[in-house]
Design a protein around this nucleic acid. Sequence first.
DNA 1: TCTGGGGTCCTAGGACCC
DNA 2: TCTGGGGTCCTAGGACCC
Length: 391
Amino acid sequence: MVAIVAFLQKSQNQAKVPKKERNFLFHVDLDCFFAAVEIREQPSLKGLPIIVGGDKESKRGVVTTCTYEARRFGVHSGMSIVDALKLCPESICLPRGNYLLYREVSDSVMSILSTYTDEFRCASIDEAYLNLTKIINKEFNGNPIPIAEEIKKEIFEIEGITCSIGIGSNTTIAKMATSQNKPNGITYIPKEHIKEFLKPLPVRRISGIGPKSAERLQKNHGVETIGQIMKLETEYEMIRKYGSLGKFFYRIISGEGRTKLKTNDYYGAQSISKGRTFYGYLEDGEPITAEKLLPKLIDQVHERLTKKSFRFKTVTLEIKLQNSFKNINKSRSFLAANDDKERINSTVFELLEEFRNTHKDEPIRKVAVRVSNFGKKDSNQKSITDFFSEK
DNA sequence: TCTGGGGTCCTAGGACCC
DNA sequence: TCTGGGGTCCTAGGACCC
């Protein structure tokens, strides 16, 4: 191992090897996306505290997105509507009803982005990664800012919404850079400034470190900021102290990390699911039971599956328990991939019976049906543009 | 924090095969 | 009949993300 490293360093010093180019990974994040689309459609909403998701009347649901005017009061996504309204009673709650429109705008933005590079990954409805290393080194003399400005301008001109862009030598740094300067910002963290940038930030800011890991780091090691982790220098030391997280930390801090993007045409999708929490009534006015709800969920999953010409091998029934909020997953796999609705149906009900056998009368909070483990795609698959125009 | 919906990825044990 | 080691798939659960 040591020998290989030494060899690489040596070869980099030789004249015939080109000077090592910097990597430029871009993370593009649409600002308060759903809310921004709503405001675009209804400009009188501009400047108001808008919450998308949840219902003011029934006080159910959580905040999906909100404008900065609402964030100023402490409202943030994931928060229950009840709490959000306590913080900002005058906020305007919009249902997430315009989902098709959000999808349309997102598709349009993604196709704009994909014209800049083939190395492109759509990470969610409002986020994407681009590897612009080649073009920036070749045509912009290693300066990523002009192209970032161009991307922002193009998105704004075509779709009328703003985005924030983070640039770094790997995807994690790029993403962290984005949140440094929101909304409507551009942040570039050159490799030599990574340590300085990371030092004061809480570990929780790293994408992949959630509440559980943050708590463990605090409890077991007294660690709160990334600077505290940076006191260790080698990968070996970090792994010894933090286990597999140590490896992850080392990569981020050293600026190496992931630069290859798994490009996703839509076939990147790993699963399709549909679920519902038990509240209110079914459309026919009957109270909700798993038996009544599941066929509807299966219909919807199957519809999406066939729309995408996917074939599944695995069917999963997910059940969230009312009292403990625990998820129980039951799944069954088949040897051959298929798209048979009856197959999903019979499997789901078998799994439900198994659940009932072991959990007797445990009240259920939510059920979901998932299909996954998709078989190989056909040769005459659709192009990437089909992906972006699909629901 | 009394918590929606749709996802991804990782881990770990067990079965089964060579 | 006791014995590996390695690879892969399946199942279940958990953490995390937007």
